[in-house]
Design a protein around this nucleic acid. Structure first.
Lengths: 155, 155
DNA sequence: CACGAATAGTCAACAAGGTTGACCTTACGG
DNA sequence: CCGTAAGGTCAACCTTGTTGACTATTCGTG
């Protein structure tokens, strides 16, 4: 099929790129035995990496309702990736933190992303890849207030 | 909030970029009076732009089942954007083609995408934007067989 | 310090959009 | 011809999200 002379819309490229990365990640995770990981888990892992997070924070981060975020956390608790604690200074909060298993998954995910990005670098070169990342960050930070906006691609 | 020194994962950037474009598109569409447009409509419009498409073709393009594609078409028929015909040479096919309203929507969508991309070009420069597009196409064509793979970001 | 408003979270009902699986009809290739 | 493949539909179900009502804390201001 001949390539149209029209430029491919960026939206389509981003959709493909995103899906490609996510599919690649989950294929490799499955191969490595992580078969119960849903795409959205990554956000929770990332958000809870350094310090406990909360359902509300997750909701803002992902651009969903806090109920949806809470359900996601519940799923991950059941799967053994995170745990809900209770806060000393605010009894309303149920801080979400990673279990040992969750930490292992996070490490694995980051390793796989690094691998995939390395493969991409093999295709277009590391320099161009980093340039791509840099340009994207710049464009996207613009819309938000210098910070990267919430994430989840609504479909 | 201080930016981490870690590079932002590409997956997250693509997710943000995609969502940003789609949200921007639909905001502007809504402003212009197109209030019943779903994100997935775009694929159908694009696929049916030059020649009639089919549910099966759409399914492959979007990476869903043909039933899901068919439902989408049904929705768009009801909304008046496409029409299902019948083929002369193959009575099994129900070719999907754009209505006048569908064509107007397509034109509008393309105009809005052009506007948004122009705004992006205003941020990082047209040259870098085109470089970004080019690099993306190269990387993504690699995974597929020279062609861009299916699209829909599974969530 | 008391009381009203805001915040963190939960529960339950529902909706959208997708999948699975069975089925019908038409086309194609020995 | 006849078996098999291909395009499409129907109906049941599942997953994931939303809406709306509610509880329990905390904050803040008179």
């Amino acid at each position: 099929m001949a390539r149209s002379t029209e430029p491919v819309p960026l939206a389509r490229l981003f959709a493909i790129a995103y899906r490609s990365l996510i599919d690649g990640l989950h294929e490799r995770l499955a191969t490595a035995g992580w078969t119960d990981v849903r795409p959205a888990f990554g956000f929770v892992l990332l958000a809870a990496r350094d310090k406990p997070t909360s359902s509300t924070e997750l909701a803002v981060l992902m651009g969903t309702t806090k109920q949806a975020a809470s359900k996601l956390v519940e799923t991950m608790v059941t799967a053994g990736y995170v745990r809900r604690g209770s806060s000393v200074d605010d009894a309303r909060q149920r801080p979400v933190s990673l279990t040992a298993r969750g930490k292992r998954l996070l490490v694995t995910v980051e390793q796989i992303y690094a691998d995939i990005e390395a493969e991409w670098a093999g295709v277009i070169g590391a320099t161009k890849l980093e340039r791509l990342r840099r340009d994207l960050v710049r464009v996207l930070s613009q819309a938000g207030d210098g910070e990267l906006p919430p994430v989840r691609p609504t479909w």
